[in-house]
Amino acid sequence: MDPLVGYIPGVFDLFHVGHLNALRQARARCDLLVAGVVSDEACEAVKGFRPTVPFAERIEIVDAIGLVDATYGELSTDKLDSWREVGFHVIFKGDDWQGTAKGRALEQSMAGIGVRVHYFPYTLQTSSTARRRALGEAQVS
């Protein structure tokens, strides 16, 4: 039987326990885990800002944790492009996507190629957005 390949995309900026939790949960649900680290340019195109930690460093951090079998540099925001390169069977996302237009679009896109979308609880109290906001407030003070 072929190994179940999981894929967890993310910016992984300002690495925190929410990232760690997601990687741990994904690791437990597949045989091989690939982390798709979103490029600075792709992050800026989707979220409107560049990550604080540079792309190469974010890849190195995710690699060093020892929870993933490989990292993949996501240069495109289209998960079909990632699937063509990685060949995963399940994609992991935070449940903040579940039930949203972007979540439904991802589910539809992935269903067309036989990939399952699995949602994890989003760590509300710890997020890169919250940290970025706190850092901005600390700089003003």
Rank of each mutant, 00 (worst) to 15 (best):
M1C: 04
M1S: 12
D2M: 11
D2F: 01
D2G: 03
P3R: 10
V5D: 00
G6Y: 05
G6F: 07
Y7C: 04
V11I: 14
V11R: 00
F12R: 00
D13H: 11
D13R: 06
D13N: 10
L14C: 06
F15A: 04
H16S: 08
H16C: 11
V17K: 05
G18Y: 11
G18E: 10
H19F: 07
H19D: 08
N21Y: 09
L23H: 03
L23Y: 08
Q25V: 01
A26L: 03
C30M: 07
D31S: 10
D31R: 02
L32D: 00
A35E: 02
V37P: 03
V38I: 15
D40L: 09
E44R: 15
V46I: 14
G48M: 11
R50G: 07
V53N: 04
P54L: 08
A56Y: 01
A56L: 02
E57H: 12
E57N: 07
I59A: 01
I65L: 15
L67I: 04
D69K: 07
A70K: 07
T71F: 08
Y72N: 07
T77F: 01
D78K: 09
K79C: 05
D81T: 13
S82C: 13
W83T: 08
V86R: 06
G87M: 09
H89I: 01
V90I: 15
K93S: 02
D96I: 06
Q98L: 13
Q98E: 15
T100E: 12
K102V: 14
K102A: 11
K102S: 14
R104V: 12
A105R: 12
Q108D: 11
M110I: 06
M110N: 09
I113A: 03
V115P: 02
V115S: 01
V117K: 08
F120C: 04
P121F: 02
Y122R: 13
Y122M: 08
T126N: 11
R132F: 08
R132D: 06
R132T: 03
L135N: 07
G136I: 07
A138T: 06
A138F: 11
Q139Y: 09
S141E: 13
